[in-house]
Amino acid sequence: MSDPTTDPSRRTIQRYTPNERTNHWVVAIVFVLTAISGLALFHPALYWLSVFLGGGTWTRILHPFLGLIMTLAFAVLAAAMWRFNKMEPRDWQWLRQGRDVVNNREDRLPEVGRFNAGQKLVFFVFVVCMLALLLSGIVIWREYFSLYFPVGVIRAAAVVHGLSAFILICAIVAHIYAGIWVKGSIGAMTRGTVTPGWAWKHHRAWFREKLHATHPRPRSD
């Protein structure tokens, strides 16, 4: 039997447009560079990561600019995805059934729209952390901005920056694993499409929306 998620003969549903996919991968690539350069300065055990950007000094120089590019690219992506990430009542039910979620018992869960509650939570963690990183990062950016802030604010910003970077990196690790775990998700972000079965299984409410958008229901009332 052919793999239903990759069988080319099957009709597929578009999940992300080429622009959205480009946007996502710009964020992802720049995130990796930003995280590597930040982690190099975060703990001596990771200072060796500075080789990837050409040494400690280049790491110090490039990191804040990479961070700016990443936050900008993320802002565009987040604006496009915002309306799909509003929490709804069924999302809270979904979260309460966390055990069913992690054990792949999806049939017991409430129907899911374009994004499930886990994805929505991760989305908001991203938004908050990016904002915190941007603001605190500017304060600790010695070359251009630190001179405008008193030392107490700089120290607090360093703590906020490290903490929000930690939370963001953990959230990204979870985000990446979720992509591997739910088979077919990576294809959604590389080829842009998913199979109807994938949509039906993981995002049934969204699947129905898509169906009724292509086959409008005659008004019965």
Partner: peptide
């Protein structure tokens, strides 16, 4: 992994037909 099976694809196809 959480995988999609042939039965899911069939269910989706039935749903599409109905629509």
């Amino acid at each position: 992994r959480n995988e999609v099976h042939e039965s899911d694809e069939q269910a989706a196809a039935r749903e599409t037909e109905r629509a």
